[in-house]
Amino acid sequence: MRLRRTKLYLPGNNPNMLLRGHLFEPDGVILDLEDAVALSEKDTARILIQQVLKRGEFGNCEVTVRINGMDTDLWRKDIEAVVPFGVHGVRVPKVEDPREMQLLDEALSEIEDKAGIAQGSTLVFCLLETALGIHRAYDIAISTKRIAAICPGGEDLTADLHTSRSDSGVELVGPRRMVVLAAHAAGVCALDTVFSRIADEEGLRKETEFVKQLGFEGKSVIHPNQIPIIHSVFTPTPKEIDTAKRIVAAAAEAARRGLGAVQVDGKMVDRPVVKRAAFTLQRAGITEEEVQG
């Protein structure tokens, strides 16, 4: 299970950030061809991103490209330029219609075929930035097998709801809950939107704790300094780690003895709980060997 606590946006026409972004060790990077790139520069940015992808130095990051919206004539050129050169997935803005995702799925399959890449390997991350998108979140999430995550928008979504962003964030609570529900019902990730007040570290921490509690697995990031804060929020407490260690150890022991049931402290532990415990340890950066000593 891949960690998706942070995804760092890298402006697609900025060599400095494209080349260095991964050094800050976010779980993923988003090479941005949409809002970060002026219309007149989309062509140069595509070529630059292509070269950077060919070089392929992103550490352990999940590499995605935010393509232009499917309401433009740019998205086809975007995916043709980047998919053959090694991306884990593409992030699509303003998704509203499951049929758009099916169209994207076909276009991606064609490109994967031509490029000799395994069909279906390019994942899709959907940004739901309108009321309609949020409303259809579940249908979008199950529209194709490629959907890896759905994400609520921030500014755009607020505007579409005919309200404004407040300190309390109450306007986005509802949409966030709907995205979390839809994501988990569909079996995909729920990833939250960016926190734009870069200097407000306390505010970032509070919002991250809130969305984690709602059920999100991570947030998008617009500045490297935000990464350590978000990671620490998603890092399990010593108590959680301890419990997880004991569950994973018990499961390994049961498997060794050929026993079907796993017991911890005299209580039965279900398989999803074991899986969850393994994920907790992964988030804490603890390997299996360390657990078993």
């Binding site: 060599p15 080349l19 062509d43 140069t44 595509r46 070529i47 630059l48 292509q50 070269q51 950077v52 060919k54 070089r55 050129k77 330029a81």
Partner: peptide, 23 residues
């Protein structure tokens, strides 16, 4: 301070623009 791949990308883009095409 452009690395080689950046120089290659910018050169390619400038020439393609010169030729009147887009990538």
């Amino acid at each position: 301070g452009a690395l080689d791949l950046v120089l290659a990308a910018r050169t390619k883009a400038a020439i393609l623009r010169f030729l009147g095409g887009v990538a």
